[in-house]
Design a protein around this nucleic acid. Structure first.
Lengths: 366, 366
DNA sequence: TTGAAAGCGCTAACAG
DNA sequence: CTGTTAGCGCTTTCAA
């Protein structure tokens, strides 16, 4: 039996074993400590020994065991991103921006989807934070009220998306929903509409995001001196196409249907437009529609959808940076409220015509 | 100083420390081994001691440190899912199905997106598998050829989605693209179309998926005795709306434009329809369009898009189960080719009308 | 600057 | 059935 490069074993070594820090140390003739220093660029190392170590590193094609590293230093290098639905364009577009941002900071992304189930969401919040596979959580809740959001493991860094937090219980990143909604409805008013419906209100204590949009809607109507016809405010369980379609059908069944619709998401808008087309009504001629989120579908749909466009790149950037700031201890203290930019983007569904246009910034707000 | 419940320490204990297996063992008066057995439901344990342990478990609200567990048993309990774009509906809908499937099997999901970058993809394949944070990889490649897919770390369980593998180098899950494309074009022929364009061909060695669709297109035309006009086969760099729009513009600039389009994805179809509307052509009256993927957008667009509908739930199920079969050692040996069901779903973009319909299974295959 | 050694918290051989 | 114990591979305090 020929001698192996590694010390002898009683049992035959496994066919192939990845090189460890120890192997590198032996080959380089230094201690594991030194190799670790080189690998992590920590303490100063003599150019001489560094060269030796690096040669060994290369020769063995060493790659650190991330699990072991995590266990030793108590950091997983992963963050968890929680969304209600992955196949909702708004969330997938957001994730598309979040993942590279996290990666440039050296973190991998775990994903969970809750289907908006309050129990699932609550469980995620209360899970003991240490010994977990992630160092922090980016959370887009749907079924939880503000109070429930506060009842959580305070040790786990948390940034909440899309819900308003006024009380410093956690960091929050989003846009000013009331102002954005007001702008959207102002736009419809400016287009000469008078019977403006709102689709997407939610009565629950968990529907605060929806309620802020409704608030903006009311403010804009009040400004314009228009009455609020409560029968034009339609509630929906969620913000998807099917909800938009159903709500639109209900509105059309009214004795005096609306001449415009403010939809609380682009999907809702698309669902509404779908129904309008089916019954032979023209958009925007008969009914103008404005949506919310600026998902890609709305830029290619027929007609294209006027919408409130949140700066998703900014949301992703702010959210990831705030979260990792807490993870890495650079930030402490009370949660902050971060409002990012948004813009109202008029397209065919309110203006008609057939031209495409890029992301406008008119009526942009902060 | 009052006595602490834990053994004395020379330095003050950290303000709060999560209970470990050891803590539980001490409290219950048994060995860590036994606690481990109870927690993992391994060996048989006396009801008596089990009760003791469980009481201690509950009292301390013990939760295992997953990192430590992973390091000890060499399994992370995570799989990595790699897609080119997260905000492409096909992929996000697939992920929506994959995540719960993995979770029911006890695995968490890490996500990476490559933007179709061949270097990124190749790096992922070659990364040393041990010491990684994931036990297996579900991979939807875009920029890699079959050969490049084979050049990988064989130790990492891998299931490939959406590319055809005939050679057992890895497991593959998908639908029969040639047959599905043939069905799609047959459908257009059956609708009385004669000048049928194809949008989405790709010439590269990495464009094999696209080339199979083109093959099906040619077969269907040949069957119908129709000539293949190469100017009607338009190549696109990717499969998104913008590509579909550009390709459609090019087709309309032809001296003799098509009366039907087979688009290699629903996004391409939507982009094409967008352009057709803009120039005032009617779908399907002037130009019929059939897509591929059956994404939700196509069920609510105007018109709704006829499409090839792969059984995404089956793809997710088969892919996750095959992958975990290998991860857990239940499966070994050569890679298999798994073909799942698909159906051609006719909608307004080929048939006209304005009714909605659910997922049809007519012309379903395989 | 570098080495020795003690963990991180859990699993699993190996007794008993 | 349960206890003892030796790691998993890395980081990091403490000495030298």
């Amino acid at each position: 039996m020929s001698a192996t490069p590694r010390e002898d074993r009683l049992v035959p070594a496994p066919a192939v074993r990845d090189p460890t820090l120890r192997d590198v140390a032996e080959l380089a003739g230094v201690s594991p400590r030194t190799v670790s220093n080189v690998v992590n660029g920590y303490a100063r190392v003599t150019p001489d020994t560094r060269a030796k170590v690096e040669r060994a590193l290369a020769q063995l094609d060493y790659q650190p065991n991330l699990l072991a590293r995590s266990l030793a230093n108590g950091r997983s290098g992963q963050i968890l991103v929680v969304v209600p639905y992955l196949d909702t364009p708004y969330f997938s577009e957001l994730l598309q921006a979040v993942i590279p941002r996290a990666r440039t900071r050296g973190y991998d992304v775990l994903i969970d989807q809750t289907d908006g189930d309050p129990r699932h969401e609550a469980a995620l919040l209360r899970r003991r934070s240490r010994g977990l596979r992630y160092d922090g959580m980016l959370f887009s809740p749907l079924g939880l009220s503000q109070d429930e959001l506060r009842d959580r493991d305070q040790a786990l860094p948390l940034v909440v998306l899309g819900e308003r937090s006024s009380d410093g219980g956690f960091d929050h990143v989003g846009i000013d929903d009331v102002a954005a909604s007001r702008d959207a409805v102002r736009h419809l008013v400016a287009c000469g509409r008078r019977r403006i419906a709102a689709i997407g209100d939610q009565p629950y204590r968990t529907g605060e995001a929806a309620q802020r949009r409704t608030e903006g809607y009311r403010q804009a109507l009040a400004e314009a001196g228009l009455p609020v016809d409560e029968s034009l405010v339609v509630q929906t369980p969620r913000f998807n196409r099917a909800d938009g379609a159903r709500a639109m059908e209900a509105l059309l069944a009214l004795p005096d249907p609306p001449d415009a619709v403010f939809a609380y998401s682009d999907l809702v808008a698309l669902g509404a437009v779908h129904v309008l087309h089916r019954v032979g009504l023209r958009v925007p001629d008969d009914v103008a529609v404005v949506g919310y989120d600026d998902i890609e579908d709305g830029r290619y749909s027929n007609p294209t959808i006027s919408t409130v466009s949140p700066d998703k790149a900014a949301i992703a950037r702010e959210a990831v940076d705030r979260l990792l700031g807490r993870v890495e201890g650079a930030r402490t203290g009370r949660g902050e409220e971060i409002l990012v930019d948004y813009a109202l983007v008029p397209r065919q569904s309110t203006r008609g015509g057939s031209s495409e246009e890029g992301r406008g910034s008119e009526e942009g707000r902060e």
